[in-house]
Structure formats: C-alpha cells, structure tokens
Amino acid sequence: MYVTHKEDAVKEFKVVPIIRQYEESKSFCEDFAIGRGDLVITSESTYYNYFENQMEGALVIFRGNYQKGEPSDEMVEKIYEDVKDYTYRRVFAIGGGSVLDVAKLFALRTITPVVDLFEKKIDIKKTKKLILVPTTCGTGSEVTNISILELKSRHTKMGLAVDELYADYAVLIPELLNNLPFSFFATSSIDALIHAVESYMSPKASLMTEIYSIKAINIILKGYQIIAKNGPEARKDILTDFLIASTYAGIAFGNAGCAAVHAMSYPLGSTYHVPHGEANYAIFTGVYYMYQKLQPVGKIEELNKILSNLLECSTDTVYEKLEELLNHIIQKKSLREYGMKKCEIADFTNIVMTEQGRLMANNYTELSERCVTDIYEKLY
C-alpha cells in the first residue's frame, strides 16, 4: 500500500485482486479447475464460443436470460431465486461490466433485498471466492470494489462501494475480445477513457493513481488515432492494449473515484437505456468546459497539456479536437436525440444533487445545482 500526505490529506493506493493474464480460455479453465461447487455468470455467446465442455459440474447462469440492457435490482433478485438452493464456494464472472457488477453481489452472504443492500441496511460480509474475467475493455470492474445497478424503485443508477466486493483474482484473457462488436468496443473503451480522466482530476488522486490514469489515457487515445486513420477493423490488432488500459483505468478510479460525468450520465442511462459509455460521452466534455470556466488555473492545466500533446493541438482547442477524435468511435448526440425532454433537466439535476453525492464529492471543483443545470441545458 502506498500512502502520501498532501495538504494534510492521507491518500491510499491499493490493488487488491491478484491479476493474471492468459492468452486463451483453456489455460484459465485448467488452472482454476472450474467445476462442481462453482457458480459461473456469463453470456450465452461467451460460454459457447470459449467455455463449452470446460466447466463440467458448475452451475452456469446466462445473464441474457434475465434482462436485456443495463443490470438492475430486479435482475439480481431473479438470478438469486434460481441459485439460492445451490451450494457454491466460488463465483466466476465472465463478461462485460454488467456481468461483473452483478456477480460481485453473489460472493456476499446476504444478497436480498437488493435495494436494502445498496442502502447498506444489510450487514455486508463476503463468504465466497470471487474471480472476475472481463470480455470488454471498459469498466475496469475486475479491479474495483464497486457494483453499479439500476434501482428500479429509485429511478436511478446507484453504486455500492465496499471492500467486500473486491475480486480475489482479476483475469485478463485478450482472446475473449476477439468477437466483441465495434459498438461494444466503442462504448466500453470510451468508458475506460473517462474513468482515467475523471480519476486523474479527482481530489483523491495521488502520484500512484496518476501514473495509471495517464498510461490509460495514452494507450486509449493512441489506439483511437490508429482506428480513425485505418478504420474499425484496425482495433483487432490492439485489443490487448485496450484490455490492459481498461484495467489501468480501473485501478486509478478504484482508488481516486469518478465524478460528475458519471453522476450526470446515470439518469440519462437509466431513463432512456443509453449504453453506459455512450451516456458518459454525451456528458463528458460538457463537464470539462464547465470546469475550465470555473477553475482554469490548476490541475486542469496539466490535463489539457497531456491531451494537447497526444492530439497535437493547442490547449485552447483541446476539447474540440478530443471530440473530433471520439466521434470516429461514437458520434456524439445531443440529449434530446436520446428522447430526453427539456422539462426533465430539473428532475435529472435533482437526482444528481440528492443521490450522487458519492461521485460529486470527487469533482475537480465544486459544481452547484445551477452549474449542473447549465451543463444539461448546453448539452440538450
């Protein structure tokens, strides 16, 4: 553990899971001897493409059988009903961020009611080994202690962040990204980029988290430049780089946290079912223009210099040039293009200010209710 004292604040840095990398799924299955007494949560396509006949005796749950779109408390409750009578000692999650976030909860002694769990009305105790294997290059969930769900009754997304949700092993297998469609690659990798940027700007950032943030930003933006020049198929030669960058970003934000971009994207994602990374991109530069306006002297100058060097532009045009590059990956849309109504700006602002304090505490500079409303209005 790394501890630094700066301005009377203690900043800790830790990486809890053991991180392993395998070139192929077969070696992973042999090493971990997956079988009886194991619960596996994955997607049907991932299982039949890579793991069929390699998990004899394990209880395999297909996430898609329970709910489409972003995971929710209702989805977790349904899975719980199907596995509650099965005795298991290890949980394996093989999938994107939604699979990993859901699976983390099944390593706990008490899972339901899920809303009570997220509101910490239940004693949280980890009783199972947890092994997380990402099949996208974005969430970094394999190395964080956070599970994010849509809480249907609360009409928003909410994060549960406790040390009991850390994995015992985070396993990187680049082979599992080979069949990842470009749209999923795009939304997940932009999410990783925003994790890296927000954690770099967080007041909880330390010298150690900054190293991981900067490395992730470099890898992702250089990869995007290759894709912008050579087309979407060019990503296939650099998938390992993106997988590692996602984990770096996960380590950074797992320690320093994310902030307003994520907080403001959650109501959009949960209300209009916008993919998480895309919802973040819709909000991303709007927040940073506001930061620049409110506090132009400070760490944002360092960020702008890093980005301007990578994008080969002046610091004055860095966000315009960043959007030009990101639009090769996902075309940015106005909020109204997702179906959002102007009258919902006040509702979304209220949700952010009253329910996303955990994230808003990590902002580069304080954003008032008026600032949040202004950002939504400019992006609308």
Rank of each mutant, 00 (worst) to 15 (best):
M264I: 12
E164S: 07
H273D: 09
L177P: 00
L177C: 14
H5G: 00
A263Q: 05
Y166L: 07
A279C: 06
A263Y: 06
R358Q: 15
S202C: 10
N230I: 03
D163K: 09
M55K: 04
H155R: 14
G37N: 10
A107P: 04
S147L: 01
M201P: 01
K26W: 00
F32S: 04
L151K: 05
L207H: 14
Y169N: 08
N178T: 12
E24P: 00
K378S: 12
V171I: 06
I94S: 08
T139H: 04
S147Q: 08
N53Q: 11
A107M: 03
D73M: 04
L193N: 00
T209Q: 07
I146F: 09
L322K: 06
L39C: 06
F253P: 03
P174V: 13
T354D: 02
I214S: 11
A252N: 01
T46C: 13
L307C: 01
E355V: 12
V102T: 08
Q295C: 15
L294A: 06
T271K: 01
I217F: 04
I173T: 05
L117G: 05
T240F: 05
K321R: 11
C371L: 00
F106C: 02
G231N: 09
G37S: 06
C29Y: 02
V40T: 11
V10Y: 13
Y50N: 11
N304K: 13
A107E: 05
N327M: 00
G97I: 07
E77Y: 01
A167N: 08
N53G: 12
E233S: 07
K78S: 11
N362H: 11
F62H: 02
I330A: 01
L335V: 08
S265F: 08
E369Q: 09
L307G: 03
N49C: 07
E355Q: 13
N178Q: 15
C343G: 14
S43Q: 09
D168L: 03
K104Q: 07
G269R: 06
Y86E: 06
E366Y: 11
V372H: 04
